[in-house]
Design a protein around this nucleic acid. Structure first.
Length: 642
RNA sequence: GCUGUCAUAGCUCAGGGGUAGAGCACUUCAUUGGUAAUGAAGAGGUCCUGGGUUCAAUUCCCAGUGACAGCACCA
């Protein structure tokens, strides 16, 4: 006699085992039609599953967010059926729901191309129209392996073989087709609906390992209704408009060319933006007790051998050799060993710790060609790097200080939220387990102290220590690691850094590797997308354009521009022979935040017409007032606080 | 690096076995105008590079390089 408790608190009893479909029908025909799945004591299940004991039950309908995952997962099954119907001999592997949609990985001699998608999508619509019910069956493990092996589905058989011994093996049928799946599923294929679209094809390694065969992946997006799908497709178009590579060209910020792959040619305006960010970070570091240094670009391989980088990253380093010299030099891929060299000059005392050594370190890494992405992932980049040499006791406090600084910096740049990942020991690493235990424990307790919520990223730490990663999201929803703090007991040991303790003994310092924005290149890319080129005034590469209406106003316009320049603003003067409408349009398209329009009237009255980007209204103000106003507005956020 | 797609004017793109076109941008001339495009004229191309097929290749084939998407990688 199961008693079913519903979300409104009401209880319904049933004489015996009862399915979700039956419960929904008992409540009402509307719900019976709308229910896609149910949640039984917190676990999602198919409508057809039987409930034999008392339970809390709620139903998922198309109105619920939770329906999205079911729709996407089922769309993946439908995709797989369609592909096997159209391309016999293709093996299925896995097909999960993902953010915004789903994918399915297939094994096939000939990879799918975008040209194949229309036919596959059409087939999917047929399968959905046929509306076959999804039915669940429990299989014996060996039978399941035998079944898929016989069918020639070796990838599926491998999956089952690797499932934990205690896991129930289930398959789901839809019409003639079936797939290994844990479920749950919608009642039938028709419930997937028509608000989906196949998006692209791609290669992907079996089980995410580059040593395994490459599969052919088909990506799709799926939504609850057409309106949601349209909104998503529109959002993609918007994202494309704010792509930093596009805005970088349109605003004349930078370019990249074949002769220097992965390196950036910063144009005047882009470099201005870069320098603004750099000056800001430099001020923040100085306020926070960091000392800036500069270390060599080319360093003998001996140092990299000692640090362990040569062994692990040699393939990713740029090597420089000279005919006249025996030695092999490497362009530095990171700054830490160099900073240790500075630390090692002279005897250090415990009184000097923590020592916070910062460098805008220009680094080079030979990144795999496929990893390059605009200015976000490059081969030549500059880190806002710093190493904090401290005692083990100081790790927690220093981490807290760092996180506070990082939060404040992100906020100043307009990033209100970010995620944190905690990466612990990787498989190949330096240092003993005992050292790793200490390092991980120290970082964890620091997180607690700093009140940092993190998700665990197992096995993703640096080879010398665990790390926190601070992740920002770009316009298209891609995540980019920017900030990081890493606890390192290993490098000081390897490079023999030590200080004199209060008892006159010698001890190893701990190194905290840390960066807030990560690399200037990546961060500027994210900033460009964050603001879609419409920067706040303090960041805007061109802050003001003075545009004339008639050439009689030219001398006054020059005077206006000069007054603004004297106030420290970046100004362009547009006295070109064009109508004011065209000038407004041109500068607006280039995202100039302020246009000062001057004509005869303004020249006579010594005023200016201030027009804000995107606004239609103008404000007529006396010259001195505008200068003071814009000067205040252009003050960087940290200087405003002072 | 792997899989796929792509490479034509500064930009966005069309075209196609007989050495090329549009819009915008650019230059010049006329126009001096009041808040998102004034008009006219002009200039601009090794059709990514190398090889092959062909009477003829920018177009077809092969290789390379680069870009894009995804995967793998990211000290």
């Amino acid at each position: 006699m199961p008693a079913i408790t519903l979300p409104d608190g009401s209880v319904r009893s049933f004489p015996g085992a009862v399915t979700g479909t039956e419960i929904a029908a008992a409540i009402g025909p509307g719900l019976a039609r709308a229910a896609l799945a149910m949640v039984v004591n917190g676990a999602e299940m198919d409508m057809a599953r039987e409930i034999t004991e008392d339970a809390q039950v709620k139903f998922i309908t198309r109105k619920d967010e939770a329906a999205l995952e079911l729709i996407r997962h089922d769309a993946a099954h439908v995709l797989a059926e369609a592909v096997q119907a159209l391309y016999p001999g293709t093996q299925v592997t896995i097909g999960p729901s993902i953010e915004n949609g789903f994918y399915y990985d297939f094994y096939r001699n000939e990879p799918f191309t975008p040209d194949d998608l229309p036919a596959i999508e059409a087939k999917m619509r047929e399968i959905i129209a046929a509306n076959a019910p999804f039915t669940r069956e429990v299989l014996d493990r060996d039978d399941a392996i035998a079944y898929f092996t016989l069918k020639g589905e070796s990838f599926k058989a491998e999956l089952i073989r690797d499932l934990p011994a205690d896991q129930t093996i289930t398959i789901y049928r839809q019409g003639e087709w079936l797939d290994l799946c844990r479920g749950p599923h919608l009642p039938s294929t028709g419930a997937v609906g028509t608000a989906f679209k196949l998006m692209k094809t791609a290669g992907a390694y079996w089980r995410g390992n580059a040593k395994n065969p490459m599969l052919s992946r088909i990506y799709g997006t799926a939504w609850r209704d057409q309106k949601e799908l349209d909104a998503y497709l529109h959002q993609l178009e918007e994202a494309e408009r704010r792509d930093h590579r596009r805005i970088g060209r349109e605003m004349d910020l930078f370019h990249i060319q074949e002769e220097a792959v992965g390196s950036i040619f910063w144009h005047q305006k882009g470099w201005k933006l870069y320098r603004t960010v750099e000056a800001y970070i430099r001020r923040r570091l100085e306020q926070n007790g960091y000392e800036e240094v500069r270390t060599p670009q080319l360093v003998d391989r001996k140092l990299w051998e000692m640090s362990g980088h040569w062994d692990k990253y040699r393939k990713n380093m740029f090597i420089a050799e000279v005919v006249e010299e025996e030695s092999t030099l490497a362009l530095k891929p990171m700054n830490c060993p160099c900073h240790v060299q500075i630390f090692k000059q002279g005897l250090r005392s415990y009184r000097q710790l923590p020592m916070r050594m910062a460098e805008f370190g220009a680094c080079h890494r030979y990144e795999p060609s496929g990893a390059l992405h605009g200015i976000m992932r490059v081969r030549a980049f500059t880190q806002d790097d710093a190493h904090i040499f401290c005692t083990e006791d100081q790790i927690a406090d220093e981490t807290v200080r760092f996180v506070e600084l990082l939060e404040s910096v992100y906020k100043d740049f307009g990033f209100e939220s970010f995620t944190v990942k905690f990466s612990d020991r990787p498989e190949t690493r330096a240092g003993s387990d005992e050292v790793w235990d200490r390092a991980e424990a120290a970082l964890k307790s620091a997180c607690e102290k700093a009140g940092v919520d993190y998700t665990l990223n197992p096995g993703e730490g640096a080879f010398y220590g665990p790390k926190l990663e601070f992740v920002l999201r770009d316009a298209i929803g891609r995540d980019w690691q920017c900030g990081t703090i890493q606890v390192d007991f290993v490098l000081p040991e390897r490079l023999d850094a030590e200080y004199v303790t209060s008892e006159s003994g010698r001890a190893r310092p701990v190194m905290l590797h840390r960066a807030i924005i990560g690399s200037f290149e990546r961060f500027l890319g994210i900033l460009i997308e964050q603001y879609a080129g419409r920067f706040p005034l303090w960041l805007a590469p061109t802050q003001v354009v003075v545009a004339t209406i008639v050439s009689d106003a030219d001398p006054y316009a020059e005077e206006v521009a000069e007054a603004l320049r004297s106030a420290g603003l970046t100004v362009e003067l547009d006295t070109s022979n064009q109508k004011i409408q065209a000038k407004i349009r041109d500068h607006s398209l280039h995202h100039v935040p302020n246009i000062l329009v001057v004509g005869r009237k303004e020249a006579e009255e010594r005023k200016v017409a201030l027009r804000r980007l995107g606004g239609a209204a103008q404000e007529i103000l006396p010259l001195e007032e505008v200068v003071a106003l814009l000067k205040t507005e252009a003050t960087p956020p940290d200087l405003r606080r002072n």
